[in-house]
Simulated assay, not measured.
Amino acid sequence: MSRGGGLRAAGEAVRLWFAPARLREEGTTPDYRFSLANERTFLAWLRTGLALIGGGFAVDQFLPRLHGTLRVSFTVVLLVGGGLCALRAVNHWVRCERAMRRGEDLPISRFPSALALAVGLFAAAVVVLVLLGRTN
């Protein structure tokens, strides 16, 4: 696929974020239970994004003894992660809805694994800081 073709496809996917009714123009209507399950998954990703954003605010507000640069780094990583989860949620929703309408396999993604790894590493870092007494 050419670079221009990839950019056009990405642009079309983003346009569908704001005009999901256009999905009805593709393929056939899937069983409504699958569409509702796709929507619940979307909402779960949004909740994950909100939790990360809340964690970012918590680090900033409730860990004042944490070194300034480290605190800001943790805060920014959590806030950006929350934003990425929200963007990923709508992108995944559109991709799954489109695949179901076309009768294709559902899209796969490395994002859940990357997110789980990042959260695990973040948790380990916070545990170390707690054990060192740097979070009071």
Score class of each variant (00 low, 15 high):
W17N: 08
A19L: 14
P20C: 07
R24N: 06
R24L: 11
R24S: 08
E25W: 09
E26H: 03
E26M: 09
G27Q: 00
P30D: 00
D31P: 02
D31K: 01
Y32W: 07
R33Q: 10
F34H: 09
S35C: 12
S35K: 02
L36P: 00
A37H: 11
N38D: 00
L43P: 06
W45F: 14
R47S: 15
R47Y: 13
T48C: 15
G49V: 01
A51S: 12
A51Y: 15
L52H: 01
I53S: 07
G54R: 08
G55T: 07
G55I: 04
G56M: 03
G56N: 06
A58H: 09
V59W: 00
D60Y: 13
Q61P: 05
L63S: 06
P64S: 04
P64L: 09
R65M: 13
L66D: 13
H67D: 12
G68K: 08
L70Q: 11
L70P: 03
R71K: 05
V72Y: 10
F74C: 03
T75G: 07
T75I: 11
V76L: 11
V77A: 07
V77S: 02
V77Y: 02
L78I: 02
G82Y: 00
G82A: 03
G83E: 06
G83Q: 02
L84M: 02
C85V: 04
C85L: 05
A86D: 10
L87E: 01
L87R: 01
R88D: 13
A89T: 06
A89L: 00
A89P: 08
V90S: 07
N91W: 12
N91R: 12
N91A: 14
H92K: 13
H92T: 11
W93M: 11
W93A: 04
V94I: 07
C96L: 04
C96P: 02
R98Q: 07
G103S: 08
P107C: 00
P107A: 00
I108G: 15
S109W: 07
F111I: 05
F111V: 04
P112G: 05
P112Y: 10
S113T: 07
L115S: 00
L115Q: 00
A116R: 11
A116G: 06
L117Y: 10
